[in-house]
Design a protein around this nucleic acid. Sequence first.
DNA 1: CCACAAACTTGAACCAGTCAAGAATTGCAC
DNA 2: GTGCAATTCTTGACTGGTTCAAGTTTGTGG
Lengths: 145, 145
Amino acid sequence: MSTTSGSEQLLRSAQLRVTRPRVAVLDAVHDHPHADTEQIISSVRARLGDVSHQAVYDVLKALTLNGLVRRIQPSSSVARYEARVGDNHHHVVCRGCGSIADVDCAVGETPCLTATEDHGFTIDEAEVIYWGTCPGCAASSAPDS
Amino acid sequence: MSTTSGSEQLLRSAQLRVTRPRVAVLDAVHDHPHADTEQIISSVRARLGDVSHQAVYDVLKALTLNGLVRRIQPSSSVARYEARVGDNHHHVVCRGCGSIADVDCAVGETPCLTATEDHGFTIDEAEVIYWGTCPGCAASSAPDS
DNA sequence: CCACAAACTTGAACCAGTCAAGAATTGCAC
DNA sequence: GTGCAATTCTTGACTGGTTCAAGTTTGTGG
């Protein structure tokens, strides 16, 4: 029986211990892209029963440090996590409902990383957030006709 | 006597009431770009005496809504405010000390706004945050030689 | 100058996230 | 299969930035 789910392999390759909470958290992030911490906790508990929020926070921190998940946190929003890492993509955030979608940058790779770095900073990552309105919110906020 | 400081005119042109707290907050944001709320409160109190933090929060919200200041909030950081609005520029954030500097986008105007909008979102703003290391932190974290 | 509405003060509550100490698991060696 | 050491999970409390609510003060138009 190949209980070696992809998540388990990912954990091992990152030299992290394989525990049920960790596998469940990683699966949850894979299943629900852009989920916030509360959603992840719910998802994990639905799978394992009781898991402390503390464990989830700790796991998410460990996964983030090891590059297995990426943490994104638009202004006025709680932290969200996604499993697509390494791929250089960005996000659209709806001002209405806060939903997030992935977008690839039109520029290609390493978008805008060639900023005119006036201030001597060593830039290693460019994070782009597009603000706008999702189709659903656009429809419900345009009753004007 | 031209007590009509630039801030006062800005407030009037935005149809906002001109009060001492508002003028002081607006001045503080102009004087200290990328200041967090606590710094703004200190600056305002140094100028006016006692002002409730609540007033500052309220003023900042009003100014943000009216486009007089811009709120920026990198992950793992408190809210910061800046007075340069309308100008399409972005920010470099130091992972070490959290300091922020302005950068103009290399692409020119409305950077990357031509994202491949796969999901039907109506994009109205592109926010770019460059992550890296400032000269000071780079120097202090490279004692390796 | 008056009256109304908007803005400020005070005080408390909120909530995501963090810290700390102890119990339970995991992975590895034998 | 067993046992040990280190890591990880649980429990519980706490922090700090931000927001909410009620009441008083201030600014602005008439």
